[in-house]
């Protein structure tokens, strides 16, 4: 299937008009397939993914929102069977510098379905900072969420996955399960913290990290699991496991 070109639209929040449009060059498709933004003071950065048409490669760009210039571009080689497994960028600001964490599948999903690689990209270059396995089938639908300690220091990343992987050219879905792991940036180790085993027809998981008790939301993060009937379920997490679950019917 021919990839769509894709665009990133910048909206003026006062006039409510689309003021800028970002697009890749002619060799790229699905520009803006995944985006992650970070802000510090008056500076903003945007990490954007795109694909190279006809080739098993992804591009990851960091864009300075002030002038929409490209700070750097990385080319990511992927296994052809992972064509639809997006590398998931997480853009944060560490000190004054933009950092992009990238969750990526470097091996064929069918050969090694539990394996994901976490990269850290700074101005100087990209380095692998860890691997996630832990017996979790992290096959597709990955999401990442930064967690800051009470002093505001980035101390780790929650990683969630929806296991809705289907083999290429089939409509077969193995499972519909959600999983969350904690990746500790200090130790470089990951720990599984949450697994929803029952069939929930999950359509996505979002994560929201926080550092202090927030009403009844006590822990380190909230994962939201959506269900087909329009209701929702919140799962409250700590780095060591699930605290509680709340169901909300439509």
């Amino acid at each position: 299937m021919k990839p769509r070109a894709g665009r990133v639209l910048v909206v003026d929040p006062v006039k409510w008009t689309i003021v800028r449009e970002l697009a890749g060059d002619g060799s790229e498709g699905e520009f803006g397939g995944l985006c992650s933004a970070a802000h510090t003071g008056d500076r903003s950065y945007l990490a954007v993914t795109s694909v190279v048409k006809g080739e098993p490669r992804w591009l990851l760009r960091l864009i300075d929102v002030a002038d929409l210039s490209t700070v750097w571009t990385d080319t990511i080689e992927i296994d052809p069977s992972n064509r639809h497994s997006y590398p998931n960028p997480l853009c944060v600001v560490d000190g004054d510098d933009p950092v992009v964490f990238l969750l990526e599948r470097s091996k064929a999903a069918l050969d090694d379905p539990e394996h994901l690689v976490l990269w850290r990209r700074v101005l100087k270059g990209r380095t692998c900072i860890g691997h996630l396995r832990d017996g979790y089938l992290l096959r597709s639908g990955q999401n990442t969420c930064p967690h800051y300690d009470l002093k505001g220091k980035l101390d780790g990343i929650f990683v969630s996955s929806i296991d809705d992987y289907s083999p290429p050219d089939t409509r077969l879905f193995f499972e519909n399960q959600s999983r969350v792991a904690w990746f500790d940036l200090a130790t470089g180790k990951s720990v599984p913290v949450c697994r929803t085993a029952e069939d929930t027809a999950a359509a996505g998981v979002e994560l929201l990290g926080f550092s202090a008790p927030h009403g009844r939301f006590v822990g380190d993060a909230i994962a939201v699991r959506r269900v087909r009937a329009g209701g929702g379920q919140l799962v409250m997490l700590t780095r060591r496991g699930t605290v509680s679950q709340l169901e909300f019917p439509a």
Binding site: A203, G204, E206, L208, H214, G215, F217, I222, V224, R226, V227, R228, A229, G230, G231, G232, L234, A250
Partner: peptide, 11 residues
């Protein structure tokens, strides 16, 4: 306390 919003883009 601030409250929480989350989307369910299905159904």
């Amino acid at each position: 306390v601030e409250d929480l919003a989350f989307g369910c883009p299905i159904g």
